[in-house]
Design a protein around this nucleic acid. Sequence first.
DNA 1: ATATAAATGCAAATAATTTGCATTCGTATT
DNA 2: AATACGAATGCAAATTATTTGCATTTATAT
Lengths: 140, 140
Amino acid sequence: MKTIQIETILRDNKLKVTPKRTLILGTLVSSKLPLSVADILVRLPQNADIDTVTVYRNLEAFVSADIVKEYAIKKGMTHYEYKSGHSHHHLVCTNCNRIEDFTICAAQDISKKVLNQSKCFTSITSHNFELFGLCKICSK
Amino acid sequence: MKTIQIETILRDNKLKVTPKRTLILGTLVSSKLPLSVADILVRLPQNADIDTVTVYRNLEAFVSADIVKEYAIKKGMTHYEYKSGHSHHHLVCTNCNRIEDFTICAAQDISKKVLNQSKCFTSITSHNFELFGLCKICSK
DNA sequence: ATATAAATGCAAATAATTTGCATTCGTATT
DNA sequence: AATACGAATGCAAATTATTTGCATTTATAT
């Protein structure tokens, strides 16, 4: 995706446009998978010279602006994914952490039923759904 | 639950029976909610004198023995829950972290469909499913 | 009774993330 | 175009969760 398009996303979401912020969001937008902070640092252009703290603070800003979603896929490390139009879930290899997307989900129906039965909740606003298994390489 | 019953669980799962291990598992068994390590330490009898490391190492043993499940419910902290017979999922309040259990789940069906469509996975062995919303108290 | 492997505690090491503060930069407004 | 203000950034240090090393104690099979 072009830099200008990334800048448009930032402006549309009332986030100040800076070169580093643009690079960080660009990294997320062009990734098909959720990325950890370490992943992002590796994928940033080598001459970008962006501090780890800057990555954390920008991710926080993106999450607050609701353009990036946080996942606790792996114990002890948060992953971040750009919220593109099409919602999907993740199938994760328990051995190598490879991720494949899928779109089937029954959370809407289930949410309604659960809310009807619930004693102490008045609304359900979101859900997490992840499948775990073994990929072809790791199942050998 | 009685101490003797906890010890039976340990023996049945080929885990050495020690007083501290029994107390730690007992804390999990008697909790209706997933607990963090900090939660466990607080709930342990005040005279138990159990080191944090001991809690971590026992949780690791329980998870390996498949009698306790790990959750990444909250960013940056792992929660642990005793695997009792009835499987269930969690409805979590995004404001106060209150948890309510529910049992409806479509993961079996969905797993089959996803596996059929998958390009690079050969098996699906488990899933996570959590709903988030607001409880009565927090929605005011 | 005892040998052996596992459990425990303490201290220190890691790893992920956050905070404080000084400096720089983006942008709305002259 | 100049400028002022708040937001963005970097560096260092602090926090928090978790893990590791090693010496000592303990559970359990023989």
